[in-house]
């Protein structure tokens, strides 16, 4: 018995579809697809290739070791240098040569300090917060025994940002 024509034709079509389908698959599916799951496996390596931007305080300490030590021993110890020296509000001055992306002079305005220390009912109450700046100056200023304390308008005039805690016991 000869194979009927229509059966032969159908087989040919199936074979053709098989070849064409696999050809499309070969072209369309990326090489590493399915290596680790239903995704392009090479992307995992691509994603981890990028260099970190935040390098941590230790990198700053390689040159500025005294400043880093001062900071680490103070109340701002857990805060990495980048938090203030990488300020989005800061001016355009850039750090010389070595790392131009780092802003050399951080924001010294009230805004920089109050980002963390402004009083809010939503802030954890144990965290040091400032509700009223004039009142703060009026009560704590005289204890510093500085004549011109009333003229001070910035937090950094009294507080060292690297070691902000002022020991009032010694001064008055």
């Amino acid at each position: 018995m000869r194979t009927p024509k229509h059966l032969k034709r159908a087989l040919w079509i199936i074979a053709l579809l098989f070849v064409a389908g696999n050809a499309v698959r070969l072209l369309a599916v990326p090489e590493s697809f399915g290596q680790f799951g239903e995704f392009r496996g090479a992307h995992l390596s691509e994603e981890r290739e990028r260099d970190p931007v935040h390098r941590g305080s230790e990198v700053c300490g390689e040159c500025h070791d005294e400043r880093l030590e001062e900071k680490n021993n103070g109340a701002h110890g857990p805060i990495p240098c980048e938090n203030c020296h990488f300020q989005p509000y800061a001016g355009d001055e850039t750090h010389p040569e070595a790392h131009p992306e780092i802003s050399q002079s951080p924001d010294r305005s009230q805004r920089a300090c109050l980002t963390c220390h402004q009083y809010f009912p939503a802030r954890p109450q144990a965290f040091p917060q400032l509700a009223n700046f004039p009142e703060h100056i009026a009560t704590n200023g005289p204890k510093l025994k500085k004549d011109d304390v009333g003229a001070h308008t910035l937090c950094v005039h009294c507080h060292n940002p690297h070691d902000p805690k002022i020991d009032l016991g010694q001064n008055g």
């Binding site: 509000y89 805004r111 402004q118 009223n132 700046f133 009142e135």
Partner: peptide
């Protein structure tokens, strides 16, 4: 929260002698 949560009338906060910490513009 990019710039933190500062009251809009920051200048007022810095100069005013208002005693109530939960005054207007301070989320209170």
């Amino acid at each position: 929260g990019y710039g933190g949560f500062l009251p809009e009338d920051l200048a007022q906060l810095l100069t005013s002698a208002e005693k109530d910490p939960a005054g207007p513009g301070r989320g209170g």
